[in-house]
Simulated scan of single mutants.
Amino acid sequence: METVVVVRYSEIGLKGKNREWFEKKLIDNILKIVKPAAVNKRYGRIIVRIGRNNADLILERLHYVFGIQNYSLGVSVGHDLEELKQVVLDLAKKHVNEGLKTFKINAQRGYKDFPMTSLEINREFGAYVLQAFPHLKVDVHNPEFEIGIDVREKEIFVFSGKIQSSGGLPVGVSGRALLLLSGGIDSPVAGWYAMRRGLELQTVTFLSPPLTTEKSEEKVLSVGKVLSKYLPNGLRMWIVPLTEVQTYIKENAPDEYSLILQRRSMMRIASMIARRVKAKAVITGENLGQVASQTIENMAAIEEASSLIVLRPLVGFDKVEITNKAKEIGTFEISIKPYIDSCVAFAPKHPATRSNINELREIEAKLGKLHELEFEAFKSRKSYRIVSEE
């Protein structure tokens, strides 16, 4: 008998001829995030063999592996009916001691040479449980607990309960993207949703020293530590000093357009970094209509400065939904710490809500030093590599 975790996926199962590649990527990610553990593939299932490792720690770490729909802690036994019976009764006893009163046996027979059909397993082992615990009742529609019996060629998996995970696709199958990570609530959540769609992330943060302090940088790095838990190879973070670019724009451009011009500069610098690290997209936490810079006209004007596709995972979310997700993934309490980011430091009093791309280009054409200052900011970038310690 061996302690195992039965891991299930959903979307990967629809990948047809590419399914094996997605499964391999998921297994690789499990091995890197859940370590130490041994992992095997069974058709439609991935088995994590715990051995003497800490089961609670492995169950917690599996939560950070995108591509997993749900998983169950259980045991592996041989094709020995007496041993199987004892395992099922022990599991039922655990739930009886928790005060549960209705149950169901749910058997699957993947190995067709096993001498009992799935229906026969359900009936026989349900009878075993009822004989041992006469006060229990069978409820096949809405049981308080369910014991799964999964018969495979070389072993049988027995488990109870399913821990829901985040689903999606394994990180890395969709390529690499660069997340514009600010000190606010939205961008970490945008990064989470991007990773859920299989994107490996790096981040870039623009700061404005001395208006933004070391605390602002520490805040962003703390968010990075949270996001790094979902990344099998850790998180590369870039910090770019933008003060000279922002000051130049503030002093030489119309104030109502200064924020949009700053964002366009950020996009150009982010595109430089993205090309350097072979990222194929830029991700932002923009949400349509949330603030003045996030009208559709301003978003189009900002995106036009990027040489890469701009992804906005949160474009249709409202603030309540974003905040709830930030609390769920553990970034909210960090994001609300009162250390300003670069946009706040140079925010105009009355920002334009509907900018014109041609007009912005004309303004930029008159800012002779702008691209030079952007390149200097790019060259002054700092890099951190964050690896989850958990």
Rank of each mutant, 00 (worst) to 15 (best):
E372G: 03
T284L: 07
R312A: 15
R109M: 11
N356S: 15
L308K: 00
D113K: 15
E23D: 14
L360Q: 05
D28N: 15
E83Y: 04
K25W: 05
T331V: 13
L211W: 03
P241R: 13
A347V: 12
E146W: 05
K349N: 05
Y257C: 01
A279G: 08
F22P: 02
L130R: 02
F332Y: 14
S342R: 02
L231K: 12
E23W: 02
R19T: 14
I105Y: 05
A177M: 02
N142G: 06
Q246H: 03
S118A: 08
K229E: 06
L119E: 12
E2H: 08
L136K: 06
R152Q: 15
A55S: 12
I147W: 06
T3F: 04
I12C: 03
R197I: 02
I363G: 06
K327F: 10
N122V: 06
E144V: 10
Y230K: 01
L308W: 15
R268H: 08
L360N: 03
R61C: 12
Q290H: 12
M1F: 07
R361D: 03
R196G: 01
G234H: 07
G74R: 06
S174M: 04
S165T: 01
G126P: 03
K25C: 00
V77K: 10
G126C: 08
G234E: 13
G167F: 01
V240H: 11
S222Q: 11
V171A: 09
R109V: 14
K325Q: 15
L201N: 12
I260A: 07
H135D: 15
V87S: 14
V315Y: 02
S228T: 01
E60S: 08
A305K: 07
S271F: 05
R109C: 07
Y71S: 04
L259R: 05
E11K: 08
L360V: 00
A365Y: 08
R196W: 04
V77Y: 04
F125S: 06
E251A: 14
K41Y: 14
K154V: 06
M237D: 13
I68R: 06
A92C: 14
N142A: 11
R361T: 07
G184Y: 02
G99A: 05
K112W: 09
H63R: 15
S166E: 12
P209L: 09
Q131G: 00
S182A: 07
G285T: 11
I147E: 05
D56C: 06
G172S: 00
A92F: 08
A300D: 13
A300G: 08
V129D: 13
H141S: 13
E146A: 05
S72R: 01
I33D: 01
